[in-house]
């Protein structure tokens, strides 16, 4: 298996996290996302016409989009069936809903991070305001889950929904988005970083 990877990308980190949780061997093909913009090069556009990372190759299969890769890896390689539970229709829908939500986090919190850290030219106030709108939704949901005795986004066990939302929420402070006012999110981050097989990336504060 080969992962087109960028060390500072939260979307690539999602895949590295699941590969780690599933203890799967893979080869990293580092992409010069910044400053080289290799993901927009002609050669890379042949790999992914959208010019985005990550991309996963597994034998003859090539998959783009972090959420799609998570679904593929969990449904193909997770024998426990817990990372992408397929028994309950409502739970499948719930996971799918948070996968889509995570893409909205990317277009707000991750955009703010690219602005603050790498000098991307974009509307930083809009990006941060959009991120806070989403974080309030996430905060409310996690608080309700806790009332129901659930620690995770879609049920009693962590799923790819949690993996998918985790990176850009945990990296939000890189983009000047303070997480102080989201206690349920902070508790969820703490639980996530304590999972067996978790590994960090730069910008994520792992509390002991």
């Amino acid at each position: 298996m080969k992962l087109y990877d960028y060390v500072l990308s939260g979307n690539c980190y999602k895949i590295r996290l699941l590969l780690g949780f599933l203890d799967l061997d893979y080869e990293k093909r580092p992409v010069d996302f910044f400053p080289g913009r290799e993901h927009k090069s002609d050669a890379f556009l042949k790999i992914n016409p959208l010019g985005q990372i990550p991309v996963l190759e597994d034998g003859e299969i090539r998959i783009r989009d972090a959420q799609a890769i998570l679904i593929y890896l969990a449904s193909r390689y997770d024998k426990s069936g817990e990372w992408f539970p397929g028994q309950s229709h409502s739970q499948i829908a719930e996971v799918a809903q948070w996968l889509a939500f995570s893409d909205m986090i990317t277009s707000t919190a991750s955009a703010a991070r690219l602005h603050d850290m790498l000098g991307y030219n974009l509307d930083i106030d809009a990006a941060r305001a959009g991120a806070h709108r989403l974080l309030r939704v996430l905060e409310d949901h996690l608080a309700h889950q806790e009332f129901d005795g659930h620690d995770w986004l879609a049920g009693r066990r962590p799923t790819i929904a949690d993996i998918s939302c985790f990176p850009y929420v945990a990296l939000a402070e890189d983009g000047g988005i303070d997480l102080f006012c989201y206690p349920a999110i902070l508790r969820w981050i703490r639980r996530f970083t304590a999972l067996d097989g978790f590994h960090s990336m730069p910008g994520i504060n792992v509390s002991p």
Binding site: Y6, V7, L8, P30, D32, F34, M117, D174, P202, G203
Partner: peptide
């Protein structure tokens, strides 16, 4: 080399 360097520096940035 780039990934190695950026990984280290972003740990410092935080």
């Amino acid at each position: 080399l780039l990934h190695f360097q950026q990984n280290i520096f972003l740990q410092d940035r935080m």
